[in-house]
Design a protein around this nucleic acid. Structure first.
Lengths: 203, 203
DNA sequence: TGTACATCAGTGAACGCGCGTTCACTGATGTAC
DNA sequence: TGTACATCAGTGAACGCGCGTTCACTGATGTAC
């Protein structure tokens, strides 16, 4: 065991991400991260100013994971000869991926939204996926695409992100933390379908 | 100062509600509640089994406050000779009241959703307003109304609560805790309009 | 090639926080006879 | 009308928790000469 760890910052970050995955933002505990890194607890202060600095870094990675899943699910949408239909399907896939992430990576989802940050942060974070876009940027891309194809009237475009984002984010919250947490699988599927189609019909 | 307080349970509840109003669920601290009630800290255990029991009671009241605001805003919608138009306006008022509550009574809003409870709880809680319905019950009432009037096709009815509720809940979350917290007043108004009209168009 | 020294990255002990909760207790109240 | 006693509602001291953070420190590394 060498005295100098060498990759301690990365190790602490990974530990923090693992903690967040299981227990959400509150589980990102400085001392726990140093424990799993096999290092004394205040060695962390060489690499992060604060516990909150560690949490912020973890939060960024959680947001990146969300963006990655969205990208992957959009890529899975098969390309047909109808560009318009494809664009709608990609929008739908974006929303479904968002909800899927909340349901399957609940800890990460909660952590991603635990840190006070403005909108610019969600629009893009460098190095995420191929596009370098965050979840918000990916959604905007989908909507722009629809406008470009003439599928979405441009007077409908302003604020369209708000409507789409609110719907999937709200459903996610209600399903994981809120009053809808006890829904059966079937009921949950109905709810998801209803919300996603509601978004599309609302545009 | 009498030895027996007499109304201690009510006093602790009121104190808890005041704490929640300012600081959300985490601010509902047993010792703080007893302090403002002017009583030793463990006197609370005569009236609540736990801190969580107190929090649960506070949560119920927060939910009632939300229901009350919704009812009030619906009552404010003027009655015209078009029953259908009125019903749509009441639905819209319901959604706007929900968001208004989140923005103006943020602490209460957060507290209302802080305690794990199932759906049945939101549907009705006895003694709230005239109708005795919770927020979810009020929303259902509005949607049933539209179906009865023939304004909403009954095949659209199942799961319609999910779509409407998710949208306003999601926007509320994003505005108070999330990435939309820094929106200007004008942008916020646009977002609210867009979400509310999106819900209506989606039905 | 050596040596002196600044610098960086880790260690270990300690503090304070504020709370929730428990224990053994005392003061007030109501009721049976 | 008094008295004995159960019961209820409060008190006060104490514990443990686990953490974030700070302090003074030591071991390793790199660089100037």
């Amino acid at each position: 065991v060498p005295y100098h760890h060498g990759e301690l910052r990365a190790a602490l970050l990974d530990a923090g991400i693992a903690l967040a995955r299981t227990g959400g933002p509150n589980a990102v505990v400085l001392r726990a991260a140093t424990r799993t890194a096999g290092v004394s607890h205040n060695a962390a202060y060489r690499h992060f100013e604060d516990r909150s600095a560690l949490l912020r870094a973890v939060c960024e990675r959680c947001m990146s994971e969300l963006a990655l899943l969205i990208e992957r699910r959009c890529d899975d949408v098969p390309v047909t000869d109808s560009q318009v239909a494809d664009a709608w399907l990609r929008l739908e896939a974006t929303g479904r991926a968002y909800i899927e992430f909340a349901l399957t990576e609940t800890g990460w989802f909660r952590t991603a939204f635990a840190v006070p940050t403005g909108l610019e942060y969600f629009a893009s974070d460098e190095g995420v996926g191929r596009s370098g876009l965050g979840p918000y940027g990916l959604l905007s891309t989908r909507l722009d695409e629809l406008v470009t194809l003439g599928a979405l009237p441009s007077e409908q475009r302003p604020g369209a992100e708000y409507a789409a984002w609110s719907a999937v984010h709200g459903l996610s919250s209600l399903l994981i933390d809120g009053p809808l947490r006890d829904l059966s699988d079937a009921e949950r599927a109905v709810a998801i379908d209803r919300v996603v189609t509601g978004v599309v019909d609302g545009l």
